[in-house]
Simulated scan of single mutants.
Amino acid sequence: MKFRLPLTALMLGAALVAAPAFAKDKDKKDEAAATPTPPPLPTAIDTDITHEPENVLLLDLSDGGRVAIRLMPQWAPHHVERIKTLAGQGFYNGQIFHRVIDGFMAQTGDPTGTGQGGSQLPDLQAEFNSMPHLRGTVSMARTNDPNSANSQFFIVFYPRFALDKKYTVFGRVISGMQYVDAIHRGEPPEDPTKIVQASLASENKPAPAAPVAPAAPALKAPSVSDLNNSQSN
C-alpha cells in the first residue's frame, strides 16, 4: 500500500519549506536597510590655503619654490595623519626626490635616498579609494604588499589611471605645480631636488631663504705697472 498525502498537506509542506527562505531574504533586506550607505567621497578640492590650513602640506624645495598640497582626510584618514605626524617631526626636511620619472611622477619620503627606507612608525593598512591619479595627485608609495605604505609618497606629473585603487591617494597639489615639474629627473638624479622644509600651513612657517649663488670673484683693475709690463704678440 502506498501512502498518499492529501493535496492540502503537500501545499502546507511546501509553504513550511519556503518560509525559512523568505525569512532569510527579509533578514538580508532589513540588514541592508539598517546599514547606512557611506556617503560618496568629496571630489572638489579647496585651493584656498587659508581654508583648513591644518590640512595643507607645504613643501619648500631646494630650488626656492613652495608647493602646497591639500590633504584629504575624507579619502584616507590614517595616511593623512601619518603625513602630518612626520612633517611635524621634521622627518621630511632635507630629504631628496630619489625617483623622478619624466612624464610619470616624482617620489620622496625615504631618509636613505635609496627607495628602500622609511620611518620608525609601523606600516599602514591600505586605504585604497576611488580617487583617480590625475596631474598633481599625491599618493602613497608601497612595496608589492598593499599594506606596506609608511613614509614615501609621490606626486603625479600626468594622469596615470592604471594606479587607481592600487595606491592610496591622500591629497592634491593646489599651488606650485610648476616647481614639481622642475624637480630634477633620475633614479636617483645626479643633482637631486631636496625638500628643505615640510610644514603645515597652520604652523605659519616662513619659507627658508633661497640659497645664494656664490659671487664671482671681482676682477682687479690693472695698474700702470701691469700695463707697462704687458707684452703684445
Rank of each mutant, 00 (worst) to 15 (best):
T108N: 09
P132E: 13
G65V: 13
E190N: 11
L57F: 05
N55G: 02
D60I: 10
A182L: 05
G13S: 14
H184I: 11
P217V: 04
V196W: 00
A221E: 09
Q89W: 08
S175L: 09
A182C: 04
L41N: 04
L59A: 06
G118S: 07
V173Y: 03
K28T: 13
P206C: 12
A221V: 07
P132W: 13
S223G: 05
N204G: 05
A209H: 09
A207S: 15
S130L: 10
P214F: 10
L12Y: 03
N150V: 08
V196N: 03
I45H: 05
G13Q: 15
A182H: 04
D181P: 01
H98V: 11
P192M: 08
L5E: 10
G186E: 03
A221L: 05
A141E: 00
F161K: 11
P111S: 10
L10T: 12
P53Q: 11
K166A: 09
T168W: 02
S62Q: 07
G103D: 00
I155S: 01
G136I: 00
L219W: 00
V224R: 09
I155R: 01
R142S: 02
F157K: 01
A218K: 04
E127G: 06
P208F: 12
E203S: 01
G113Q: 08
A19I: 05
T114I: 05
N129P: 00
P53C: 11
E190R: 12
P146N: 08
D102N: 12
P77N: 06
S199E: 02
Q197C: 10
L58R: 06
A68L: 07
G136A: 06
N93A: 10
V169H: 05
H51E: 13
M72K: 11
P77E: 11
G13C: 15
L10Y: 12
S139M: 00
G186D: 03
G117D: 03
D226F: 10
L219Y: 00
V212T: 15
P38C: 14
N233D: 14
S175N: 08
R66N: 08
D27K: 13
K2M: 14
A106D: 05
L200I: 02
L227M: 15
G94T: 07
S139K: 00
Y92H: 01
G109S: 11
M11W: 06
S225G: 04
A106P: 00
R172S: 11
Q120H: 11
Q116G: 07
R82Y: 01
D110W: 05
P188Y: 08
T193D: 04
R135I: 02
T193M: 09
P189F: 11
V138R: 01
L124A: 07
F91S: 02
G94N: 03
H78G: 06
E81F: 09
A21D: 03
